[in-house]
Design a protein around this nucleic acid. Sequence first.
DNA 1: ATCCTTTACGTACGAATGTACATATAATGT
DNA 2: ACATTATATGTACATTCGTACGTAAAGGAT
Lengths: 192, 192
Amino acid sequence: MSRVSAGDGGAVPRRARRHDPGRRDRLIDAALTVIAERGLAGTTHREIARVADVPLGSTTYHFTSLEELLAEAFNRYAATVARVFDERMAAARDRDAAVEAVITLVSDDLLGSQRDLVLTVELYVAAARNPVLRAVTQEWMARSRQALERHFDADTARGLDALIEGLTLHNALSTEPMTPAQIRDAIRRYLR
Amino acid sequence: MSRVSAGDGGAVPRRARRHDPGRRDRLIDAALTVIAERGLAGTTHREIARVADVPLGSTTYHFTSLEELLAEAFNRYAATVARVFDERMAAARDRDAAVEAVITLVSDDLLGSQRDLVLTVELYVAAARNPVLRAVTQEWMARSRQALERHFDADTARGLDALIEGLTLHNALSTEPMTPAQIRDAIRRYLR
DNA sequence: ATCCTTTACGTACGAATGTACATATAATGT
DNA sequence: ACATTATATGTACATTCGTACGTAAAGGAT
């Protein structure tokens, strides 16, 4: 009812923030951050809200359920990664350049971003039990394979995709990761 | 205080079960079952107790914390899988037999057991945040590589291990798994 | 200006969870 | 037989969670 008088020092700003367009997007990004940092098990409405710096009620307003929020988050993540993958393969002019692009992709995923690796594995686990997320992974895989098929035949692309997956995963979990040279050799060996 | 008289029909057996040696082992196995069926997030004291058919209190008696129980479970799982892996490689008489053994391993993992695949990925996720579990995965990987090095040089073993991982994971998640012939070709192609 | 719709916010509640713990029973040693 | 120890069991409690919901403020139409 009462308004704070202008001259007052104004102790507690009761309801500060307002008018935050794009908040829905920020919540999705915050969800990905939380998943990467705390794992899916530690991803709660409250933690997401804390990271996005919004009140709890905002999360339930923008998303009807936590599951929906998580699905949107994983969907955004997969789309982002798939786009990068596709762009690099599209930029390769010939097969040799494509081989180098693959090597770069693996090396960047490994050395560049522990976050992406964690998100990927979290998605795999979740997809094992959630049909919506399984669809996300399948579309992702299809796009990856399609990108590889710009330069390699279908069977080669299929196996190469698996090799990329294994190299990434193995090295992220290992205390003694393969050297870039070893990664390069493994890929070239399969593609020779 | 009072004892049920012999002639009585005896309505409710208050405390039926007792003297259950090996219960600790059963709890570990039950934990693996629950992880595979419900995921790590759905793995609780109560659910493990239900599967093992023991009261809740029994789980907290045998294990000081849920984390300890999970660590023992994953440790047992990794040891079991690694042993099978090692046995098959040890049984191979020459390199050709070893190649066939690898193909069999991948095919069996894929077609044989969705359970194992789920447990593996759950372990990977957990290992990303739990040092104890990370040690479990690293020892597992070391044993696998060692087994492969019975027949292949170190670099080959390293890449082959990754390829096996990727093939298994990809096919478990895919709606259109690779045929056994495709799997065989991919492995032989890398080892050629 | 007045109304209506959308967006935002705070609080509350039932359900589930990890764990502690008092009690009870079997096993074992003497 | 008795005492001591290891094992087993049921219950309770503080905490955290997803979600519901009443209220408040902003945007936009008229």
